[in-house]
Amino acid sequence: MVEIWAGLVQATKLIIDLDTELLAIVFLSLKVSIAAVITAALIGIPLGAFLGMRPPVSVRWLEKLINTLMGLPPVVAGLVIYLLLSNKGPLGPMELLFTPMAMITAQTVLAIPIITGLTLVAVRDKHKEIKDTAVTLGASQQMVIWTIIREAKRAIMAAVVAGFGRVVAEVGAVMMVGGNIQGNTRVMTTAIVLETRKGNFQFALGLGIILLIIAFIINSLLYRIQGEVRNN
């Protein structure tokens, strides 16, 4: 209890002092996770929408695979990306291992199944009822597709939030492919692991609290956007 309290005090102090190391860690965390989620959304939303509009039977196996990958352990994703990017791997010449780009790649791989799978369910839910109505009103095929996606927008937004929640909090993949290099690839979660191992619980707790606050702020922002969408 004393340590939690001390962690809170430390976190407040670090934020107020605008500690440069802390800011760099937080900034890199956000940069990596946001870039990964945007990339994953660009792939996952169209893919999920496409699959969600197909007859469920025809995509059954793919759907099972996506659902399995939704629970992909981050260390496994990290391992695969590590092997691909390592010197002997097929992408070795690109020299991406232990760079933020490698971390973005790993987190993108983790977020794609979540965003795809949740978009698929959201779109499938809307597909049947919306399709008939749009079609009877004379919509062209493209307009029907667009209407279904628009009707599923809130659930798709929630899929993106869920994807962000997963990657910003994961540690295994970024640790393996990023290497937790100070000032270069150290993010909040890997820093928490390191500080805890060093026995520096207050700094670790402080970072944990900042991580929670950031997640809370981003979620609130997204809910607000959803509210505005609804009012228009």
Binding site: D132, T133, T136, A139, S140, R150
Partner: peptide, 29 residues
């Protein structure tokens, strides 16, 4: 098909304003 339309037992209105709902078919045309 654009010469006909249908109203269902349970109306499905789009999640937008009443105005946008009513104009939907006109916009499609």
């Amino acid at each position: 098909r654009r010469k006909m339309t249908m109203v269902f037992q349970r109306p499905i209105l789009f999640d937008t304003s009443v105005y946008n709902n009513v104009k939907y078919g006109l916009a499609a045309r």
